[in-house]
């Protein structure tokens, strides 16, 4: 492996951390708007029409 490719191989990629941070902030904003409660309300009900019944 050449010096250049060796350096490249050991370089930490920043893009994943920026992506994760972006979506983490998005999720926190969702929590602050009370969306978690709405998700829970939906998830604890059997939506029959959603599963093709009724």
């Amino acid at each position: 492996m050449s010096m250049g490719s060796e350096k490249k191989a050991k370089r930490v990629r920043i893009a994943p951390f920026i992506t994760i941070l972006f979506f983490l902030i998005m999720g926190i904003v969702g929590i602050m708007t009370g969306e978690v409660r709405r998700v829970l309300e939906q998830a604890v009900q059997v939506c029959l029409s959603c599963i093709g019944i009724g």
């Binding site: 992506t19 994760i20 979506f23 999720g27 969702g30 709405r38």
Partner: peptide, 13 residues
């Protein structure tokens, strides 16, 4: 203001 931010945020992480 339920725009799916919590769900998309979780999926994105």
């Amino acid at each position: 203001n339920f725009f799916g931010l919590y769900v998309v945020g979780t999926m994105g992480v």
